[in-house]
């Protein structure tokens, strides 16, 4: 194996806020506007891609986030998933969807960095630079929002009360991490 080198190597705890990078996690981007797509995904993952905007579906193993009317993001809950298992899943999806012209399957495990934020100040912190209205989001488990935090694109996935996963592009992740930590001083 090669050395795994994630961009963020620490966990931070503040009053009412914990932040930590959760890696390695397999993440796969799905695109499709074909009818059979949903069933195929259902067969492979045992969950259906959500049709409703800003929502997600999931089971113990995987989360499936709505990103657009023809785009979804799969991410695994399992940090221990072996590289072979990851490759097998990707190949299986690719062969069933992409190869058969049912859509597109793209590995984005290292494109996105997943940061878990939890604590009752989470939304105060994000709202320092995020114009998104969290009033509905925070009351609905599984909500998904794509928006900007400190002018950086992010995907937010509401896991539980005051607990969310934030996805940020790897190249921006250290910058956003520094900003989050700087902001945490003032909540």
């Amino acid at each position: 194996m090669l050395n795994f080198n994630s961009p963020i190597k620490e966990e931070k705890k503040y009053n009412d806020l914990n932040i930590i990078e959760v890696e390695p996690i397999i993440k796969i981007n799905l695109r499709s506007n074909k009818r059979e797509f949903s069933t195929k995904i259902g067969k492979i993952l045992s969950i259906l891609p959500p049709n409703e905007a800003n929502t997600s579906s999931g089971n113990e193993k995987f989360n499936l986030l709505w990103l657009s009317s023809d785009e979804w993001l799969i991410y695994s809950n399992d940090k221990e998933m072996s590289l072979d298992d990851q490759t097998n899943l990707e190949d299986k999806l690719f062969n069933e969807i992409s190869k058969l012209n049912q859509g597109a399957v793209t590995n984005v495990s290292d494109h996105w960095v997943m940061i878990n934020l939890n604590g009752n100040k989470v939304y105060d912190l994000l709202s320092k630079s995020c114009p998104y209205n969290f009033n509905d989001f925070k009351n609905k488990k599984g909500s998904v929002a794509q928006t900007i935090v400190n002018r950086i694109d992010v995907i937010l996935h509401h896991k539980e009360d005051d607990n969310l996963n934030l996805f940020v592009r790897r190249s921006f992740s250290e910058d956003l991490w520094l900003w989050i930590n700087d902001s945490a001083r003032f909540i």
Partner: peptide, 17 residues
């Protein structure tokens, strides 16, 4: 800054567009 009602995602701040 307006609020734009994205036909896919719903009402969002103009800075997302």
């Amino acid at each position: 800054m307006f609020i734009i009602n994205c036909p896919y995602c719903g009402e969002r701040d103009q800075s997302e567009f």
